[in-house]
Nucleic acid binder design. Structure first.
Length: 560
RNA sequence: UGGGACGUAGCCAAGUCGGUUAAGGCACGGGGUUUUGAUCCCCGCAUUCGCAGGUUCGAGUCCUGCCGUCCCAGCCA
Protein backbone atom coordinates (compact mmCIF):
# COMPACT_ATOMS: atom_id res chain seq x y z
CA UNK A 1 0.00 0.00 0.00
CA UNK A 2 1.19 3.45 -0.76
CA UNK A 3 -0.28 6.56 0.79
CA UNK A 4 1.95 8.95 -1.06
CA UNK A 5 0.28 11.13 -3.66
CA UNK A 6 2.31 9.35 -6.32
CA UNK A 7 0.84 9.66 -9.78
CA UNK A 8 -1.56 6.86 -10.63
CA UNK A 9 -0.11 4.54 -13.20
CA UNK A 10 -1.79 5.47 -16.43
CA UNK A 11 -1.68 4.35 -20.02
CA UNK A 12 -3.50 4.90 -23.30
CA UNK A 13 -5.92 2.03 -22.74
CA UNK A 14 -6.90 3.31 -19.34
CA UNK A 15 -7.49 6.72 -20.89
CA UNK A 16 -9.78 5.21 -23.51
CA UNK A 17 -11.75 3.44 -20.79
CA UNK A 18 -12.07 6.63 -18.78
CA UNK A 19 -13.33 8.47 -21.85
CA UNK A 20 -15.84 5.76 -22.70
CA UNK A 21 -17.18 5.85 -19.17
CA UNK A 22 -17.33 9.63 -18.98
CA UNK A 23 -18.95 10.03 -22.38
CA UNK A 24 -21.57 7.48 -21.45
CA UNK A 25 -20.60 5.14 -24.28
CA UNK A 26 -20.49 2.41 -21.65
CA UNK A 27 -22.03 2.31 -18.20
CA UNK A 28 -19.56 -0.34 -17.13
CA UNK A 29 -16.75 -2.20 -18.80
CA UNK A 30 -16.10 -5.83 -19.51
CA UNK A 31 -12.82 -7.41 -20.62
CA UNK A 32 -11.70 -10.92 -21.33
CA UNK A 33 -8.51 -12.96 -21.20
CA UNK A 34 -8.64 -15.34 -24.20
CA UNK A 35 -5.81 -17.91 -24.20
CA UNK A 36 -5.65 -20.78 -26.65
CA UNK A 37 -5.27 -23.94 -24.55
CA UNK A 38 -2.29 -25.20 -26.52
CA UNK A 39 0.51 -24.50 -24.07
CA UNK A 40 1.40 -23.07 -20.72
CA UNK A 41 1.10 -19.45 -19.72
CA UNK A 42 4.28 -17.41 -19.32
CA UNK A 43 5.27 -14.08 -17.84
CA UNK A 44 4.17 -12.31 -21.02
CA UNK A 45 0.64 -13.69 -20.62
CA UNK A 46 0.73 -12.41 -17.07
CA UNK A 47 0.97 -8.90 -18.50
CA UNK A 48 -2.24 -9.42 -20.42
CA UNK A 49 -3.91 -10.99 -17.39
CA UNK A 50 -2.90 -8.11 -15.13
CA UNK A 51 -4.08 -5.61 -17.75
CA UNK A 52 -7.43 -7.21 -18.48
CA UNK A 53 -8.37 -8.07 -14.92
CA UNK A 54 -6.70 -5.00 -13.50
CA UNK A 55 -8.48 -2.45 -15.63
CA UNK A 56 -11.87 -4.08 -15.08
CA UNK A 57 -11.25 -4.18 -11.32
CA UNK A 58 -10.23 -0.56 -11.24
CA UNK A 59 -13.44 0.63 -12.87
CA UNK A 60 -15.81 -1.82 -11.25
CA UNK A 61 -16.14 -3.97 -14.36
CA UNK A 62 -15.80 -7.69 -14.90
CA UNK A 63 -13.50 -10.04 -16.78
CA UNK A 64 -14.21 -13.37 -18.44
CA UNK A 65 -11.77 -16.17 -18.97
CA UNK A 66 -12.41 -17.50 -22.46
CA UNK A 67 -10.57 -20.38 -24.03
CA UNK A 68 -10.03 -19.75 -27.72
CA UNK A 69 -10.46 -23.38 -28.65
CA UNK A 70 -11.19 -23.23 -32.35
CA UNK A 71 -8.43 -25.56 -33.48
CA UNK A 72 -9.02 -29.09 -32.19
CA UNK A 73 -5.66 -30.28 -33.50
CA UNK A 74 -3.61 -28.26 -31.05
CA UNK A 75 -5.66 -27.90 -27.93
CA UNK A 76 -6.46 -30.02 -24.92
CA UNK A 77 -7.95 -30.25 -21.46
CA UNK A 78 -4.65 -30.44 -19.59
CA UNK A 79 -3.56 -27.08 -20.91
CA UNK A 80 -6.95 -25.66 -19.93
CA UNK A 81 -6.59 -26.85 -16.37
CA UNK A 82 -3.05 -25.57 -16.10
CA UNK A 83 -4.12 -22.16 -17.40
CA UNK A 84 -6.95 -21.89 -14.89
CA UNK A 85 -4.59 -22.81 -12.08
CA UNK A 86 -2.10 -20.17 -13.21
CA UNK A 87 -4.68 -17.38 -13.49
CA UNK A 88 -6.04 -18.17 -10.03
CA UNK A 89 -2.57 -18.40 -8.59
CA UNK A 90 -1.85 -14.93 -9.91
CA UNK A 91 -4.76 -13.82 -7.77
CA UNK A 92 -7.54 -13.25 -10.29
CA UNK A 93 -11.02 -14.70 -10.41
CA UNK A 94 -13.02 -14.54 -13.63
CA UNK A 95 -16.60 -13.43 -13.75
CA UNK A 96 -17.50 -16.20 -16.23
CA UNK A 97 -15.64 -19.09 -17.78
CA UNK A 98 -16.40 -19.51 -21.47
CA UNK A 99 -15.02 -21.24 -24.54
CA UNK A 100 -15.16 -20.16 -28.14
CA UNK A 101 -16.58 -23.65 -28.67
CA UNK A 102 -19.61 -22.63 -26.59
CA UNK A 103 -20.52 -20.42 -29.54
CA UNK A 104 -20.01 -22.89 -32.40
CA UNK A 105 -23.74 -23.05 -33.16
CA UNK A 106 -24.24 -19.27 -33.03
CA UNK A 107 -21.14 -18.74 -35.11
CA UNK A 108 -22.55 -21.17 -37.67
CA UNK A 109 -25.86 -19.34 -37.78
CA UNK A 110 -24.12 -16.00 -38.30
CA UNK A 111 -22.10 -17.56 -41.10
CA UNK A 112 -25.29 -18.75 -42.75
CA UNK A 113 -26.54 -15.18 -42.46
CA UNK A 114 -23.46 -13.94 -44.28
CA UNK A 115 -23.92 -16.51 -47.04
CA UNK A 116 -27.57 -15.54 -47.43
CA UNK A 117 -26.70 -11.86 -47.71
CA UNK A 118 -24.13 -12.62 -50.38
CA UNK A 119 -21.17 -11.88 -48.15
CA UNK A 120 -19.72 -15.35 -47.89
CA UNK A 121 -19.29 -18.25 -50.28
CA UNK A 122 -18.02 -21.78 -50.38
CA UNK A 123 -14.63 -21.96 -52.02
CA UNK A 124 -13.18 -25.01 -53.68
CA UNK A 125 -9.81 -23.70 -54.75
CA UNK A 126 -6.94 -25.44 -52.97
CA UNK A 127 -4.95 -23.74 -50.24
CA UNK A 128 -2.12 -23.14 -52.70
CA UNK A 129 -4.46 -21.65 -55.27
CA UNK A 130 -6.06 -19.38 -52.71
CA UNK A 131 -2.61 -18.09 -51.80
CA UNK A 132 -1.75 -17.50 -55.41
CA UNK A 133 -5.04 -15.74 -56.15
CA UNK A 134 -4.46 -13.36 -53.28
CA UNK A 135 -1.67 -11.74 -55.26
CA UNK A 136 1.85 -10.65 -54.50
CA UNK A 137 1.43 -7.93 -51.95
CA UNK A 138 5.15 -7.03 -51.92
CA UNK A 139 4.56 -5.60 -55.35
CA UNK A 140 1.23 -4.15 -54.41
CA UNK A 141 -0.47 -6.47 -56.84
CA UNK A 142 -4.26 -6.84 -56.46
CA UNK A 143 -5.70 -10.31 -55.96
CA UNK A 144 -7.76 -12.22 -58.49
CA UNK A 145 -11.29 -13.28 -57.79
CA UNK A 146 -11.98 -16.95 -57.37
CA UNK A 147 -14.17 -18.61 -59.99
CA UNK A 148 -16.38 -19.74 -57.09
CA UNK A 149 -16.86 -16.27 -55.71
CA UNK A 150 -20.15 -15.76 -57.53
CA UNK A 151 -21.51 -19.19 -56.84
CA UNK A 152 -25.29 -18.93 -56.24
CA UNK A 153 -26.26 -18.43 -52.62
CA UNK A 154 -28.34 -21.63 -52.59
CA UNK A 155 -25.38 -23.66 -53.74
CA UNK A 156 -23.09 -22.22 -51.04
CA UNK A 157 -25.75 -22.80 -48.44
CA UNK A 158 -26.10 -26.42 -49.47
CA UNK A 159 -22.37 -27.04 -49.60
CA UNK A 160 -21.78 -25.30 -46.27
CA UNK A 161 -24.44 -27.44 -44.62
CA UNK A 162 -22.87 -30.57 -46.03
CA UNK A 163 -19.43 -29.43 -44.85
CA UNK A 164 -20.92 -29.16 -41.40
CA UNK A 165 -22.52 -32.58 -41.71
CA UNK A 166 -19.16 -34.17 -42.37
CA UNK A 167 -19.67 -35.19 -45.99
CA UNK A 168 -16.24 -34.02 -47.15
CA UNK A 169 -12.65 -34.73 -46.41
CA UNK A 170 -10.36 -32.13 -44.83
CA UNK A 171 -9.39 -29.34 -47.18
CA UNK A 172 -12.03 -30.04 -49.81
CA UNK A 173 -13.92 -26.80 -49.25
CA UNK A 174 -13.60 -23.69 -47.20
CA UNK A 175 -16.05 -20.89 -46.37
CA UNK A 176 -14.75 -17.48 -47.35
CA UNK A 177 -16.00 -13.98 -46.59
CA UNK A 178 -16.71 -12.06 -49.78
CA UNK A 179 -15.03 -8.73 -49.18
CA UNK A 180 -12.49 -7.21 -51.56
CA UNK A 181 -9.77 -9.03 -53.48
CA UNK A 182 -8.12 -5.72 -54.36
CA UNK A 183 -7.88 -4.40 -50.83
CA UNK A 184 -4.41 -3.25 -49.78
CA UNK A 185 -5.21 -4.95 -46.50
CA UNK A 186 -4.31 -8.60 -46.88
CA UNK A 187 -6.83 -9.71 -44.33
CA UNK A 188 -9.69 -8.27 -46.34
CA UNK A 189 -8.92 -10.34 -49.48
CA UNK A 190 -11.72 -12.81 -48.84
CA UNK A 191 -10.47 -14.35 -45.61
CA UNK A 192 -11.26 -17.94 -44.75
CA UNK A 193 -13.97 -18.27 -42.09
CA UNK A 194 -14.30 -22.04 -41.81
CA UNK A 195 -12.17 -25.02 -42.67
CA UNK A 196 -13.09 -28.69 -42.64
CA UNK A 197 -11.46 -30.68 -39.89
CA UNK A 198 -12.72 -34.15 -39.32
CA UNK A 199 -11.17 -34.17 -35.90
CA UNK A 200 -12.65 -34.58 -32.52
CA UNK A 201 -12.61 -31.59 -30.25
CA UNK A 202 -11.79 -31.89 -26.58
CA UNK A 203 -15.08 -30.30 -25.61
CA UNK A 204 -17.52 -30.82 -28.46
CA UNK A 205 -16.35 -34.29 -29.40
CA UNK A 206 -17.34 -35.34 -32.93
CA UNK A 207 -20.26 -32.97 -33.24
CA UNK A 208 -18.48 -30.62 -35.62
CA UNK A 209 -16.65 -31.18 -38.88
CA UNK A 210 -16.03 -27.53 -39.58
CA UNK A 211 -14.18 -25.20 -37.26
CA UNK A 212 -14.18 -21.39 -37.31
CA UNK A 213 -11.00 -19.42 -37.88
CA UNK A 214 -9.71 -17.00 -35.26
CA UNK A 215 -10.84 -13.85 -37.07
CA UNK A 216 -14.36 -15.09 -37.46
CA UNK A 217 -14.70 -16.46 -33.95
CA UNK A 218 -12.99 -13.86 -31.87
CA UNK A 219 -14.92 -10.67 -32.44
CA UNK A 220 -18.26 -12.44 -32.38
CA UNK A 221 -17.34 -14.20 -29.14
CA UNK A 222 -16.49 -10.78 -27.70
CA UNK A 223 -19.82 -9.41 -28.90
CA UNK A 224 -21.82 -12.32 -27.49
CA UNK A 225 -20.25 -11.87 -24.09
CA UNK A 226 -20.81 -8.13 -24.08
CA UNK A 227 -17.11 -7.38 -23.98
CA UNK A 228 -16.56 -3.61 -24.24
CA UNK A 229 -12.78 -3.49 -24.62
CA UNK A 230 -11.07 -6.39 -26.34
CA UNK A 231 -7.40 -6.01 -25.47
CA UNK A 232 -4.88 -7.92 -27.53
CA UNK A 233 -1.28 -7.73 -28.65
CA UNK A 234 0.12 -5.68 -31.50
CA UNK A 235 0.28 -8.41 -34.13
CA UNK A 236 -3.52 -8.30 -34.33
CA UNK A 237 -3.57 -4.63 -35.20
CA UNK A 238 -3.91 -5.39 -38.91
CA UNK A 239 -6.82 -7.69 -38.19
CA UNK A 240 -8.89 -4.92 -36.68
CA UNK A 241 -10.63 -3.82 -39.89
CA UNK A 242 -11.72 -7.43 -40.39
CA UNK A 243 -12.78 -7.72 -36.76
CA UNK A 244 -15.00 -4.69 -37.33
CA UNK A 245 -16.21 -5.82 -40.76
CA UNK A 246 -17.56 -9.09 -39.40
CA UNK A 247 -19.45 -7.33 -36.63
CA UNK A 248 -20.88 -4.78 -39.02
CA UNK A 249 -22.16 -7.44 -41.36
CA UNK A 250 -24.04 -9.62 -38.93
CA UNK A 251 -26.85 -8.63 -36.56
CA UNK A 252 -24.24 -8.24 -33.83
CA UNK A 253 -25.29 -8.78 -30.25
CA UNK A 254 -22.61 -6.39 -29.00
CA UNK A 255 -20.20 -3.65 -29.90
CA UNK A 256 -16.73 -4.51 -28.65
CA UNK A 257 -13.69 -2.42 -29.53
CA UNK A 258 -10.34 -4.07 -30.16
CA UNK A 259 -7.33 -2.24 -28.72
CA UNK A 260 -3.79 -3.47 -29.20
CA UNK A 261 -0.79 -3.16 -26.90
CA UNK A 262 2.83 -4.32 -27.05
CA UNK A 263 3.77 -7.72 -25.70
CA UNK A 264 5.94 -7.83 -22.63
CA UNK A 265 9.38 -9.30 -23.30
CA UNK A 266 12.28 -10.01 -20.97
CA UNK A 267 15.96 -10.36 -21.69
CA UNK A 268 18.02 -13.45 -20.87
CA UNK A 269 15.15 -15.77 -21.76
CA UNK A 270 12.93 -16.92 -24.62
CA UNK A 271 9.16 -16.64 -24.58
CA UNK A 272 7.68 -18.20 -27.69
CA UNK A 273 5.62 -21.33 -27.16
CA UNK A 274 7.66 -23.12 -29.79
CA UNK A 275 10.98 -22.41 -28.06
CA UNK A 276 9.60 -23.20 -24.64
CA UNK A 277 8.29 -26.51 -25.93
CA UNK A 278 11.69 -27.33 -27.44
CA UNK A 279 13.41 -26.70 -24.12
CA UNK A 280 11.02 -29.14 -22.46
CA UNK A 281 10.99 -31.79 -25.17
CA UNK A 282 14.74 -31.81 -25.61
CA UNK A 283 15.27 -32.16 -21.90
CA UNK A 284 17.19 -28.93 -21.61
CA UNK A 285 14.89 -28.13 -18.71
CA UNK A 286 13.02 -30.68 -16.62
CA UNK A 287 9.49 -29.63 -17.54
CA UNK A 288 7.17 -26.66 -18.11
CA UNK A 289 7.49 -25.84 -14.43
CA UNK A 290 11.27 -26.01 -14.31
CA UNK A 291 12.22 -23.07 -12.09
CA UNK A 292 14.33 -21.61 -14.89
CA UNK A 293 11.38 -21.34 -17.26
CA UNK A 294 9.64 -17.98 -17.72
CA UNK A 295 6.32 -19.82 -17.43
CA UNK A 296 3.96 -18.96 -14.61
CA UNK A 297 4.40 -22.50 -13.32
CA UNK A 298 8.17 -22.15 -13.46
CA UNK A 299 8.18 -18.82 -11.68
CA UNK A 300 5.86 -20.22 -9.02
CA UNK A 301 8.16 -23.14 -8.39
CA UNK A 302 11.13 -20.82 -8.42
CA UNK A 303 9.58 -18.94 -5.52
CA UNK A 304 8.18 -15.87 -7.23
CA UNK A 305 5.08 -14.57 -5.50
CA UNK A 306 1.95 -13.58 -7.40
CA UNK A 307 2.14 -10.21 -5.66
CA UNK A 308 5.56 -9.53 -7.09
CA UNK A 309 4.50 -10.42 -10.64
CA UNK A 310 1.42 -8.23 -10.40
CA UNK A 311 3.39 -5.31 -9.01
CA UNK A 312 5.93 -5.75 -11.79
CA UNK A 313 3.41 -5.50 -14.60
CA UNK A 314 1.41 -2.77 -12.90
CA UNK A 315 4.55 -0.67 -12.67
CA UNK A 316 5.91 -1.48 -16.13
CA UNK A 317 2.89 0.06 -17.75
CA UNK A 318 1.30 -0.57 -21.12
CA UNK A 319 2.18 1.07 -24.42
CA UNK A 320 2.44 0.29 -28.09
CA UNK A 321 6.20 0.29 -28.36
CA UNK A 322 7.93 -3.06 -28.42
CA UNK A 323 10.28 -3.37 -25.53
CA UNK A 324 12.53 -5.80 -23.75
CA UNK A 325 12.55 -5.38 -20.02
CA UNK A 326 15.67 -6.25 -18.05
CA UNK A 327 15.39 -9.46 -16.07
CA UNK A 328 17.00 -7.52 -13.25
CA UNK A 329 13.87 -5.43 -12.93
CA UNK A 330 11.67 -8.49 -12.44
CA UNK A 331 14.17 -9.88 -9.93
CA UNK A 332 14.00 -6.66 -8.04
CA UNK A 333 10.24 -7.03 -7.62
CA UNK A 334 10.53 -10.44 -5.93
CA UNK A 335 13.26 -9.12 -3.69
CA UNK A 336 11.08 -6.22 -2.65
CA UNK A 337 8.10 -8.40 -1.91
CA UNK A 338 10.04 -11.16 -0.17
CA UNK A 339 12.06 -8.68 1.83
CA UNK A 340 8.80 -7.64 3.49
CA UNK A 341 7.40 -11.10 4.04
CA UNK A 342 10.07 -13.77 4.14
CA UNK A 343 11.05 -15.12 7.56
CA UNK A 344 14.81 -14.99 8.06
CA UNK A 345 16.87 -18.08 8.63
CA UNK A 346 20.47 -19.21 8.46
CA UNK A 347 21.83 -21.76 6.03
CA UNK A 348 25.39 -22.62 5.17
CA UNK A 349 25.81 -23.64 1.56
CA UNK A 350 29.53 -24.36 1.49
CA UNK A 351 30.43 -25.31 5.04
CA UNK A 352 33.70 -25.19 6.89
CA UNK A 353 33.86 -26.16 10.56
CA UNK A 354 34.53 -23.72 13.39
CA UNK A 355 35.29 -24.96 16.91
CA UNK A 356 34.57 -22.57 19.76
CA UNK A 357 37.40 -23.85 21.94
CA UNK A 358 36.26 -22.08 25.11
CA UNK A 359 32.63 -23.16 24.73
CA UNK A 360 31.55 -25.94 27.13
CA UNK A 361 31.62 -29.33 25.46
CA UNK A 362 28.25 -31.05 25.04
CA UNK A 363 26.29 -27.92 25.83
CA UNK A 364 23.57 -26.39 23.67
CA UNK A 365 21.85 -23.08 24.15
CA UNK A 366 18.73 -22.11 22.26
CA UNK A 367 19.02 -18.51 21.24
CA UNK A 368 16.05 -16.31 20.40
CA UNK A 369 16.32 -14.83 16.94
CA UNK A 370 13.80 -12.54 15.28
CA UNK A 371 12.05 -13.89 12.20
CA UNK A 372 12.35 -10.42 10.68
CA UNK A 373 14.68 -7.67 11.85
CA UNK A 374 12.25 -4.86 11.07
CA UNK A 375 9.05 -6.69 11.99
CA UNK A 376 8.94 -7.78 15.61
CA UNK A 377 5.31 -8.82 15.11
CA UNK A 378 6.57 -11.79 13.13
CA UNK A 379 7.98 -13.17 16.36
CA UNK A 380 11.10 -15.16 17.11
CA UNK A 381 12.44 -18.54 16.26
CA UNK A 382 14.87 -20.54 18.39
CA UNK A 383 18.32 -21.27 17.06
CA UNK A 384 20.59 -23.82 18.73
CA UNK A 385 24.26 -23.05 19.37
CA UNK A 386 26.88 -25.56 20.39
CA UNK A 387 30.65 -25.88 20.44
CA UNK A 388 31.02 -26.93 16.83
CA UNK A 389 29.41 -24.82 14.14
CA UNK A 390 29.50 -24.48 10.37
CA UNK A 391 30.24 -21.20 8.67
CA UNK A 392 30.48 -20.31 5.00
CA UNK A 393 33.87 -21.09 3.47
CA UNK A 394 33.76 -17.67 1.82
CA UNK A 395 33.48 -15.98 5.17
CA UNK A 396 37.03 -16.84 6.15
CA UNK A 397 40.24 -15.75 4.44
CA UNK A 398 43.73 -16.34 5.65
CA UNK A 399 45.13 -13.49 3.68
CA UNK A 400 42.20 -11.17 3.00
CA UNK A 401 42.11 -8.13 0.75
CA UNK A 402 41.41 -4.66 2.06
CA UNK A 403 37.90 -4.04 3.33
CA UNK A 404 37.26 -7.70 4.03
CA UNK A 405 34.99 -7.55 7.07
CA UNK A 406 34.68 -11.26 7.72
CA UNK A 407 36.74 -13.77 9.67
CA UNK A 408 40.53 -13.79 9.42
CA UNK A 409 43.38 -15.04 11.60
CA UNK A 410 43.31 -13.15 14.91
CA UNK A 411 40.26 -11.27 13.68
CA UNK A 412 36.91 -10.84 15.36
CA UNK A 413 33.49 -11.25 13.85
CA UNK A 414 29.96 -11.51 15.20
CA UNK A 415 27.98 -14.69 14.81
CA UNK A 416 24.57 -13.45 13.80
CA UNK A 417 22.10 -13.58 16.68
CA UNK A 418 24.85 -14.91 18.96
CA UNK A 419 28.35 -14.11 20.20
CA UNK A 420 31.41 -12.31 18.99
CA UNK A 421 34.17 -14.78 18.20
CA UNK A 422 37.88 -14.42 17.63
CA UNK A 423 39.94 -16.65 15.37
CA UNK A 424 42.84 -18.27 17.22
CA UNK A 425 44.02 -21.03 14.93
CA UNK A 426 43.63 -22.39 11.42
CA UNK A 427 43.92 -26.11 10.67
CA UNK A 428 44.70 -27.20 7.13
CA UNK A 429 45.10 -30.50 5.33
CA UNK A 430 48.02 -31.66 3.22
CA UNK A 431 46.74 -29.68 0.23
CA UNK A 432 46.60 -26.49 2.21
CA UNK A 433 42.81 -26.58 2.31
CA UNK A 434 41.33 -25.16 5.51
CA UNK A 435 39.60 -27.97 7.39
CA UNK A 436 38.93 -26.39 10.74
CA UNK A 437 39.04 -22.97 12.33
CA UNK A 438 39.51 -22.55 16.06
CA UNK A 439 37.89 -19.58 17.72
CA UNK A 440 37.19 -18.25 21.18
CA UNK A 441 33.83 -16.70 21.90
CA UNK A 442 33.19 -13.71 24.15
CA UNK A 443 30.53 -14.90 26.65
CA UNK A 444 29.52 -11.33 27.49
CA UNK A 445 28.69 -10.45 23.91
CA UNK A 446 25.59 -12.54 23.30
CA UNK A 447 22.77 -10.73 21.51
CA UNK A 448 20.63 -9.02 24.08
CA UNK A 449 23.33 -8.83 26.76
CA UNK A 450 25.00 -5.53 27.77
CA UNK A 451 28.25 -6.78 26.28
CA UNK A 452 26.52 -7.07 22.93
CA UNK A 453 26.91 -3.34 22.47
CA UNK A 454 30.50 -3.93 21.51
CA UNK A 455 30.85 -3.38 17.79
CA UNK A 456 32.83 -5.49 15.39
CA UNK A 457 32.99 -4.86 11.68
CA UNK A 458 31.51 -8.05 10.35
CA UNK A 459 28.60 -10.35 11.06
CA UNK A 460 28.42 -13.84 9.60
CA UNK A 461 25.80 -16.57 9.61
CA UNK A 462 26.33 -20.08 11.00
CA UNK A 463 24.58 -23.33 11.88
CA UNK A 464 25.29 -25.70 14.76
CA UNK A 465 26.96 -28.89 13.58
CA UNK A 466 24.91 -31.03 15.95
CA UNK A 467 21.57 -29.47 15.04
CA UNK A 468 22.01 -28.50 11.42
CA UNK A 469 19.99 -30.42 8.85
CA UNK A 470 21.26 -31.41 5.42
CA UNK A 471 19.27 -30.15 2.49
CA UNK A 472 19.63 -30.23 -1.28
CA UNK A 473 19.78 -26.65 -2.47
CA UNK A 474 19.27 -25.85 -6.13
CA UNK A 475 20.97 -22.62 -7.03
CA UNK A 476 19.09 -21.22 -10.00
CA UNK A 477 20.29 -18.48 -12.24
CA UNK A 478 19.30 -17.07 -15.62
CA UNK A 479 18.65 -19.71 -18.28
CA UNK A 480 20.76 -17.94 -20.90
CA UNK A 481 24.04 -16.15 -20.61
CA UNK A 482 23.27 -13.52 -23.22
CA UNK A 483 20.58 -10.87 -23.13
CA UNK A 484 19.12 -11.86 -26.49
CA UNK A 485 19.53 -15.60 -27.21
CA UNK A 486 17.70 -15.18 -30.53
CA UNK A 487 19.83 -12.25 -31.58
CA UNK A 488 22.65 -14.01 -33.43
CA UNK A 489 21.76 -14.75 -37.03
CA UNK A 490 23.74 -17.92 -37.57
CA UNK A 491 23.73 -19.29 -34.07
CA UNK A 492 21.09 -21.34 -32.38
CA UNK A 493 19.65 -20.00 -29.17
CA UNK A 494 20.47 -23.27 -27.42
CA UNK A 495 24.15 -22.43 -27.72
CA UNK A 496 23.60 -19.71 -25.19
CA UNK A 497 22.22 -21.82 -22.37
CA UNK A 498 23.90 -20.74 -19.15
CA UNK A 499 25.83 -23.79 -17.88
CA UNK A 500 25.32 -22.46 -14.36
CA UNK A 501 21.59 -21.89 -14.70
CA UNK A 502 21.34 -24.71 -12.18
CA UNK A 503 24.09 -25.51 -9.70
CA UNK A 504 23.25 -28.28 -7.27
CA UNK A 505 24.36 -28.12 -3.67
CA UNK A 506 23.65 -31.67 -2.50
CA UNK A 507 24.32 -31.12 1.18
CA UNK A 508 23.86 -27.59 2.42
CA UNK A 509 23.22 -27.16 6.14
CA UNK A 510 20.04 -25.45 7.24
CA UNK A 511 18.85 -24.40 10.66
CA UNK A 512 16.07 -26.54 12.18
CA UNK A 513 13.30 -23.93 11.73
CA UNK A 514 13.57 -24.25 7.95
CA UNK A 515 13.22 -28.02 7.94
CA UNK A 516 9.76 -27.65 9.43
CA UNK A 517 8.56 -25.76 6.34
CA UNK A 518 6.24 -27.08 3.63
CA UNK A 519 6.62 -26.88 -0.14
CA UNK A 520 5.96 -23.32 -1.26
CA UNK A 521 7.15 -21.75 2.00
CA UNK A 522 9.74 -19.07 1.47
CA UNK A 523 12.67 -17.81 3.52
CA UNK A 524 15.45 -15.35 3.37
CA UNK A 525 18.70 -17.12 4.12
CA UNK A 526 20.45 -14.17 5.61
CA UNK A 527 23.34 -12.72 3.64
CA UNK A 528 22.53 -15.10 0.80
CA UNK A 529 19.18 -14.82 -0.89
CA UNK A 530 15.52 -15.79 -1.01
CA UNK A 531 14.71 -19.48 -1.09
CA UNK A 532 11.62 -21.64 -1.29
CA UNK A 533 10.90 -25.26 -0.47
CA UNK A 534 10.43 -27.39 -3.59
CA UNK A 535 7.66 -30.00 -3.94
CA UNK A 536 10.37 -32.61 -4.56
CA UNK A 537 10.99 -32.49 -0.81
CA UNK A 538 8.01 -34.80 -0.32
CA UNK A 539 9.66 -37.70 -2.11
CA UNK A 540 13.21 -37.25 -0.89
CA UNK A 541 15.14 -38.04 2.24
CA UNK A 542 15.98 -34.39 2.73
CA UNK A 543 14.43 -31.02 2.08
CA UNK A 544 14.88 -29.71 -1.46
CA UNK A 545 15.21 -25.96 -1.58
CA UNK A 546 15.28 -23.61 -4.57
CA UNK A 547 17.02 -20.32 -4.69
CA UNK A 548 14.57 -17.76 -6.02
CA UNK A 549 17.03 -14.90 -6.27
CA UNK A 550 20.17 -13.79 -4.49
CA UNK A 551 20.32 -10.78 -2.24
CA UNK A 552 21.88 -7.64 -3.64
CA UNK A 553 25.58 -7.97 -3.03
CA UNK A 554 27.61 -4.78 -3.16
CA UNK A 555 30.66 -6.65 -1.85
CA UNK A 556 30.64 -8.98 -4.85
CA UNK A 557 30.03 -6.06 -7.16
CA UNK A 558 32.93 -4.16 -5.63
CA UNK A 559 35.23 -7.10 -6.30
CA UNK A 560 34.41 -7.42 -9.97
C1' U B 1 10.40 -1.01 -54.15
C1' G B 2 3.65 -3.37 -50.55
C1' G B 3 0.76 -2.84 -46.00
C1' G B 4 0.33 -2.02 -40.52
C1' A B 5 2.73 0.07 -36.21
C1' C B 6 6.46 2.13 -33.10
C1' G B 7 10.89 5.57 -31.87
C1' U B 8 11.12 10.46 -24.66
C1' A B 9 17.91 8.69 -20.20
C1' G B 10 21.44 2.14 -19.88
C1' C B 11 15.95 -0.43 -19.20
C1' C B 12 10.52 0.40 -18.66
C1' A B 13 7.53 4.74 -18.97
C1' A B 14 4.04 9.58 -17.92
C1' G B 15 3.45 13.68 -20.73
C1' U B 16 -4.94 16.26 -21.68
C1' C B 17 -6.95 21.68 -26.26
C1' G B 18 0.94 23.20 -28.37
C1' G B 19 2.28 27.18 -22.71
C1' U B 20 6.56 28.00 -18.85
C1' U B 21 11.11 23.34 -13.77
C1' A B 22 10.22 16.95 -19.40
C1' A B 23 6.46 12.65 -13.82
C1' G B 24 7.65 7.94 -11.53
C1' G B 25 10.27 3.16 -11.08
C1' C B 26 14.71 0.18 -12.10
C1' A B 27 19.94 0.68 -12.93
C1' C B 28 24.04 3.84 -11.70
C1' G B 29 27.15 7.46 -8.41
C1' G B 30 27.78 9.73 -3.44
C1' G B 31 26.51 10.03 1.92
C1' G B 32 23.92 8.23 6.60
C1' U B 33 21.67 4.18 9.74
C1' U B 34 22.30 -1.11 10.54
C1' U B 35 24.16 -7.68 14.75
C1' U B 36 22.23 -9.44 6.93
C1' G B 37 28.43 -5.78 2.74
C1' A B 38 20.53 -6.97 2.91
C1' U B 39 16.75 -3.51 4.15
C1' C B 40 15.84 1.62 5.20
C1' C B 41 16.93 7.07 4.68
C1' C B 42 18.97 11.39 2.13
C1' C B 43 21.33 13.59 -2.32
C1' G B 44 22.68 13.35 -7.53
C1' C B 45 21.45 11.45 -12.36
C1' A B 46 17.65 14.03 -20.16
C1' U B 47 19.17 22.37 -21.36
C1' U B 48 16.26 17.85 -24.19
C1' C B 49 12.23 14.24 -26.55
C1' G B 50 15.26 9.24 -33.66
C1' C B 51 17.30 13.15 -37.39
C1' A B 52 16.57 17.62 -40.51
C1' G B 53 13.64 21.49 -41.84
C1' G B 54 8.94 24.33 -41.25
C1' U B 55 4.42 26.73 -38.74
C1' U B 56 4.02 29.65 -33.99
C1' C B 57 5.11 34.80 -29.24
C1' G B 58 5.85 29.58 -27.71
C1' A B 59 6.55 22.44 -30.15
C1' G B 60 8.16 16.20 -27.07
C1' U B 61 3.16 17.73 -28.50
C1' C B 62 1.13 20.53 -35.28
C1' C B 63 3.21 20.04 -40.75
C1' U B 64 6.92 18.04 -44.41
C1' G B 65 10.98 14.98 -45.51
C1' C B 66 14.45 11.41 -43.95
C1' C B 67 16.47 7.47 -40.75
C1' G B 68 15.86 3.22 -37.55
C1' U B 69 13.14 -0.98 -35.30
C1' C B 70 9.06 -4.53 -35.07
C1' C B 71 4.85 -7.26 -37.36
C1' C B 72 2.28 -9.41 -41.91
C1' A B 73 2.73 -14.51 -47.57
C1' G B 74 -1.82 -20.57 -41.98
C1' C B 75 -7.41 -23.78 -44.45
C1' C B 76 -2.67 -21.21 -36.60
C1' A B 77 -4.09 -18.08 -32.67
Amino acid sequence: MNNDPTPTATNFIRNIVINDLESGKHQSIKTRFPPEPNGHLHIGHAKSICLNFGIADEFGGTTNLRFDDTNPLKENEDFMNAIMEDVRWLGFEWDNLYHASDYFEQLYQYAVHLVKTGKAYVEELSAEEILEYRGDWMNNEPGRESPWRDRPVEESLDLFERMKAGEFEDGKYVLRARIDMASPDRFMRDPVMYRIRNASHHRTGDEWHIYPMYDWAHGISDAIEGITHSLCTLEFEEHRPLYDWFLENIPSPGNPRQIEFARGNLDFTVMSKRRLRELVEEGIVSDWDDPRMPTIAGLRRRGYTPESIRAFWDDMGVSKSNSIISMGVLENYVRNDLNERAPRAMAVLDPVKVILTNYPEGETEWLEAPRHPQKPEMGNRRVPLSRDIWIERDDFMEDPPRKFFRLRPDGEVRLRNAYIIKCTKVVKDADGEVTEIHCEYDPESRSGMPGAARKVKGTIHWVSVEHGIEAEVRMYDRLFNVANPLGEKDRDYREFINPHSLDMVPAAIIEPSVAEGKPGDFFQFERSGYFTIDPDSESRDRPVINRTVSLRDSWAKMNK
